[in-house]
Amino acid sequence: MNNNILVIILASGVFYGTPLFFAALGELFTERSGVLNLGVEGMMLMGGVSAVWASQHIPGTSWFVVLCSILIGAFAGALVAALHAFLCVTLRTNQTVAGLSITIFAGALGLSSYFANVWDVASETVKHPIRILNPGGLADTPIVGPILFHQTILTYLSWVLCVLSVVYLFRTRTGLKLRSVGESPQTADAVGINVAKYRYIHTILGGALAGVGGTYYSLTIVPQWVDGVTKGAGWIAIALVIFGFWRPDLTLLGAYLFGALQSLGLTLKSRNIQINGSILDAMPFIMTVLVLVIVSGGWAHKRLRAPAALGVPYEREER
């Protein structure tokens, strides 16, 4: 039963969806604060390359090295995000151009590749990849086991994060403040919320989560360093935030859907089912466009739209 094709498709959806979720959750926080971050791809790659470096150079037991690698991946992503926050919040530059600059600067043809060369991380395989963890033998339960519990520590962590994020955004005072900064920074400022602080913190947090997403690619999926290993996952993450209507729970489901679609072609091919892989590959992107069309007009626009101040620099002097 656990070899059923549907089970395999769902399991790979969770497996390939996890890094998408990390990056998308990060982008979600950033966008909720009113900052558009188009540099996710660059942050993921910087996280990924730093994590590989860490995993090759930090001594110690396997789990310790893995933990350090994840943290260093997150740190690298956060560092790049701090640069984005500086450009967008302090210097109030055009956020689209700033985000694209980040991706060009750090991306597949930029700093991540440069560091990979200088550190020489691509030449050997990763010594301590993030392995599948079977919590208490749960992976052997029929159907649910292989889908949900034949995963890495990062997947289990992502569920915790998902729940925490929902609580944080919709059930805490800080979360309410964060959303008000994204909706109307003027109002937030008037009631004494430090807009710049909120934007900095959540942009940097977003970058850290993107870095973890990148780490998942270089330490779990591949696991080795290849320039541009994320293959555009950062852009999918940005799309996912829209797809999930800026809500962590829906974004998680969307990530699994996109993850399943990404791997569906391969899964079907291994079962000798002939299907046009190109159409499957294109589905996430086409679906995002369709969702965007739906949420852009009418009823949905009022309830499920983007934060109102998304992408608009806040200029306090002009109140």
């Binding site: 210097l91 530059t93 055009n94 694209l100 060009i104 991306g107 930029g110 991540s112």
Partner: peptide
């Protein structure tokens, strides 16, 4: 190393958008 060109392009962009200010 490859990657240097993208890095430099990115830096030029940063300073250009920052200079715009």
């Amino acid at each position: 190393p490859s990657g240097l060109v993208g890095t430099l392009q990115g830096l030029i962009l940063f300073t250009a958008v920052a200079g715009e200010i």
